[in-house]
Design a protein around this nucleic acid. Structure first.
Lengths: 137, 137
DNA sequence: CAGGATCCGGTCGGATACTG
DNA sequence: CAGTATCCGACCGGATCCTG
């Protein structure tokens, strides 16, 4: 079979799966904020990070950081002191992703009004289903 | 932009919330695929879309399309015929978002290996938790 | 201070049945 | 064909307790 440089459909599928997974990752509520904070604030500790992000539970922050670490986007440094001191910082990879996400971020900022307006228009058409604006009788 | 600081902190907060929401949206498993399909395949019907995406339930496809429609990213056209014929296509806004997301998509494709390798390295260190080898310094 | 373990409510999402 | 309504299991994520 002409197996040239043609990638197997499986490889393509796995790539797409990973693409989806990463987009899912950056779309995650906390992941984004963590990347943002570490990107602008540089290396920082767990508690500091939790404080700056605000609203994130210890569980979710830990989970988020673990995933980022696993994907090579964040470096976790444990200082063998007491009390424990753990610092997190973005890797080059993490910074690059942050910049890529920036494009979407920018798009949203630029088209905020369009989206909000579209929603208002849409909602107008669908209020009828609910308890309507009482303009009927 | 010569705009002074006319924006209230509340407006900024709401903007950030919407940014997060949109990133969450594009990170959604099906949303991405729908945008991709409509972007490359142009206007198409519900069933066709479901068939091309594959693996999506009717419930989720409907929900995804509704959200995209509400945000003004997709146009839904109902043809009053029998059997029903409903077609979906991207708006200009939707196409623009698709392009913005493309940046992240590209990043992932370019750094696929880095992420996969990082994961392998990370996993090596954590296999110990499972039935890992007992040998450890 | 960092984070593992657990409980538990809320939401997500698939399968199914029904409609126009 | 396109979509709504419902049931229900799986997972998400917060609160809490405990440890080194």
């Amino acid at each position: 079979m002409g197996a040239r440089q043609t990638k197997s459909p499986e490889a393509v599928a796995r790539k797409e799966a990973l693409v989806r997974e990463m987009l899912d990752r950056v779309g995650d509520k906390w992941t984004l904020l963590v990347i943002e904070e570490l990107g602008s604030g540089g290396e920082m500790r767990f508690t500091r990070l939790r404080d700056r992000i605000g609203g994130v539970s210890q569980k979710m922050l830990t989970k988020t950081l673990r995933e980022l670490e696993r994907d090579g986007l964040v470096i976790r440094t444990v200082h063998p002191v007491v009390p424990p001191r753990v610092e997190y910082r973005l890797t080059k990879l993490g910074e690059a992703l942050g910049e890529a996400v920036c494009g979407v971020w920018t798009w949203v900022e630029n088209h905020l009004q369009d989206v909000e307006q579209a929603r208002q228009v849409y909602d107008r058409k669908h209020v009828r289903e609910m308890g309507g604006p009482a303009g009927e009788g």
